[in-house]
């Protein structure tokens, strides 16, 4: 009984850390225009819309965060193997991983913009200087919390995977959660505030992203401010629920049926969420946007 209470406590702590991680990850990637919104930022100069948006295309978010978190976890593992206290080891590992992330961000921006010189898109050094540091700060929060989750899973819950492998798995999960949940707030909403809500992006509007702000020219910090309000918390909720439910079902039901209990509960959770998602989708289509009728079932 006591071990289950302890396990639930760790589960709750990991879920809370994951919520912070998801929010930080999504804000970081939106400031850097990473993930699917990147295509429009990349396209804009080619359509004649020169902008001051940070274009940090490193990879999709899942592989990029797979690297940052695996690297942070690997370095933390190495420091712990050198008899350094775990908290300090995780901080040092995350800091070095963030250094790598920052260097990748600068080279990605310079490379993408220099390759667009045909269209007259200049490199803005102030964009590079002011935004790389902000993405690094958010990335540090995301990496530190996720590596801490991995350490808790490994050290407190006794997961058999070593820390770097857990870092790879949960890093990819973090990137996928932020990419799937948070990006629409930036890519579908913030970039196209001039278009009718719910209209999609017609071909004629491709690349015509919002480039001017309430005062002056919009930069990616404005986008970070916007997506931190809704996209970040939504991603945080998503990743927090993933981590919490995953650990919860393992801690509570693993003893039943030699592990099969946890698997069955996992399948039930997926089915419950499928029903909830479908209901929300139909409800949203009925109430918002220019859709007259909800699409046929099963589409």
């Amino acid at each position: 009984m006591e071990s289950i209470v302890f396990g639930i406590g760790i589960t709750a702590l990991a879920g809370a850390l994951a919520t912070v991680a998801g929010a930080a990850e999504n804000t970081e990637s939106d400031i850097g225009s990473q993930g699917d919104p990147n295509s429009q930022v990349q396209l804009a100069p080619q359509m004649g819309y020169i902008h001051r948006i940070f274009n940090k295309a490193i990879a999709g978010e899942p592989p990029a965060y797979g690297l940052w978190v695996a690297l942070g976890a690997g370095l933390a593992w190495a420091f712990m193997a050198m008899q350094i206290n775990p908290i300090l080891a995780i901080v040092l590992g995350s800091a070095l991983a963030v250094f790598v992330q920052g260097v990748y961000a600068t080279t990605a921006y310079l490379g993408r913009i220099a390759s667009l010189s045909k269209f007259g898109q200049p490199v803005f050094i102030d964009v590079l200087k002011s935004m790389t540091t902000v993405t690094m700060a958010h990335a540090f929060v995301a990496i530190f919390t996720t590596v801490t989750i991995c350490h808790l899973i490994n050290a407190a819950l006794g997961h058999p995977f070593p820390l770097p492998l857990l870092g790879l798995v949960w890093g990819i999960a973090l990137g996928a959660a932020g990419s799937a949940t948070g990006n629409p707030f930036y890519g579908k909403e913030r970039q196209y505030q001039t278009q009718k809500f719910g209209a999609g992006v017609p071909i004629a509007a491709s690349g015509n992203i919002v480039r001017y702000a309430e005062a002056g020219e919009r930069n990616s910090l404005d986008n970070g401010w916007f997506s931190a309000k809704l996209g970040g918390p939504a991603s945080g909720l998503c990743f927090g629920l993933i981590v919490f439910l995953e650990l919860w079902r393992t801690v509570i039901f693993e003893k039943i049926g030699a592990g099969w209990g946890a698997i069955v509960v996992g399948i039930i959770i997926i089915l419950v969420f499928t029903v909830i998602d479908r209901y929300i989708e139909v409800w949203a289509r009925k109430n918002y946007g220019p859709y007259g009728e909800p699409a046929k079932e099963g589409s």
Binding site: I113, S117, Q121, V123
Partner: peptide, 8 residues
């Protein structure tokens, strides 16, 4: 290679 190298 860049079209221009601008600061602020």
């Amino acid at each position: 290679d860049a079209a221009a190298w601008l600061d602020a």
